[in-house]
């Protein structure tokens, strides 16, 4: 009986699937067709991040990846050093510049910094991985830490 009702009311038609597949594939197509846009985005992204931390511009890696129903932008931006925060004295300047996870730059990076994403444990000293998500519907993926 439940099967019957399911069949009667459930199951969206295949057009919904078609629409969703098209949406994703066209996003990927458009990104592939706009390498200069991605370059510019990379530059702008790095410029913003560089206001707070020093990054290794030569080793920046930005990729796009399909994750279930969303397209995610994955940016790997190695951080060379963290600027001393100035201004509000609430922050205690760090002693050494390099491997500073969450505690290091909250005043600078502000609330926009991606959800606690850095897998702190796996960090080699001066390099920190940063993960950003674009168009993510899962606003805050369970912190992997």
């Amino acid at each position: 009986m439940i099967e019957f009702l399911k069949r009667l009311f459930g199951q969206p038609g295949s057009s919904a699937t078609a629409k969703e597949r098209l949406r994703l594939v066209l996003m990927t197509d458009h990104l592939e067709l706009a390498p200069e846009m991605i370059e510019k985005m990379k530059r702008d992204l790095v410029d913003v991040i560089s206001r707070f931390v020093e990054v290794d511009r030569d080793r920046i890696d930005v990729t796009f990846e399909r994750q279930d129903a969303t397209l995610a932008m994955l940016a790997n931006i190695p951080i060379l050093s963290v600027n001393r925060p100035n201004g509000n004295g609430t922050h205690k300047p760090p002693e050494q510049p390099a491997p500073l996870p969450e505690a290091s730059a909250p005043a600078a990076a502000g609330p926009s910094a991606a959800p606690p994403s850095a897998k702190a444990g796996s960090d080699k000293p001066p390099v920190r991985k940063r993960r950003r998500r674009k168009k993510s519907q899962r606003a805050a993926p369970a912190p992997a830490t």
Partner: peptide, 16 residues
């Protein structure tokens, strides 16, 4: 087919 959700509708196509 559109009515039964088996074909992309005009809005689906032009929404894209």
């Amino acid at each position: 087919l559109v009515r039964r959700g088996k074909m992309l509708s005009v809005d689906d196509v032009n929404g894209i």
